[in-house]
């Protein structure tokens, strides 16, 4: 998708503008919100309902809640190495989808029936920016489906089992997983002996 249009201009165009337009969504909510501090409870609902439409229950396949896809998306939003514009785009897509719901259905997205929500998701899929937002969510969903369970996704290897996937050995451990290995980039060392490593 990155080749279809200039990714950066796209992210900029749909960054802050949407955030300002949808300020009411940021109003506090008393419900428990997994994304507290990152998404309002209403934005969380939009995201979770979108996930169910993109990757629904089907035969014996795992669902986003089983895979802990929302938690994976939260980890992505918390990751300091991820481009802030990418994160902003991911968040603001929820606002944008709700605005479409208000325009077309005269209701907030999370109050619509699943059929109406699905209709709107298919509607935005036809737009470059809608397709890009959904694609981004799907990519993160695939990560939650197929990354190593050390990242608290692909719970009980359900994604691997569903797709008959054999992981490579050695699998990541606490010392070399993503957050640990990034520390190598900050090492200020002078190596003169092999046993220093």
């Amino acid at each position: 998708m990155a080749n279809k249009f200039n990714r950066r201009n796209f992210l900029k165009a749909f960054g802050a503008t949407w955030l300002i337009a949808q300020l009411p969504l940021w109003q506090s909510c008393k419900e428990t919100n997994l994304f507290e501090g990152y998404l309002t409870s209403n934005q969380t609902k939009i995201l979770q309902q979108t996930l169910l439409i993109l990757f629904p229950s089907y035969k014996n396949s795992p669902t986003p809640s089983i895979l802990k896809t929302p938690q994976h998306i939260l980890n992505y939003l918390k990751d300091p190495y991820i481009d802030p514009d990418e994160k902003k785009f991911l968040i603001n897509g929820t606002n944008w989808l709700n605005e479409i719901a208000q325009e077309i259905k005269k209701q907030n997205f999370w109050t619509l029936s699943i059929n109406e929500q699905t209709e709107l998701v298919y509607h935005i899929k036809k737009k470059n920016w809608g397709e890009s937002w959904l694609s981004k969510i799907l990519t993160l969903t695939f990560e939650s489906l197929l990354l190593d369970p050390i990242y608290d996704v692909n719970i009980k290897e359900k994604g691997w089992k569903w797709l008959h996937h054999t992981p490579g050995i050695p699998r990541p451990d606490a010392n070399n997983k993503y957050t640990s290995i990034l520390k190598r980039k900050k090492e200020n060392v002078i190596i003169t002996r092999l046993d220093q490593l």
Binding site: E143, L146, L147, D148, Y151, P167, G168, I169, P170, R171, P172, D173, N175, N176, K177, Y178, I181, R184, K185, E187, V189, I191, L197
Partner: peptide
């Protein structure tokens, strides 16, 4: 310019 990744750092981890 880059870091020193040791052999033990190289798990089969698609995320990394």
């Amino acid at each position: 310019k880059g870091p020193w990744y040791r052999t033990k750092d190289f798990a089969k981890d698609e995320l990394v």
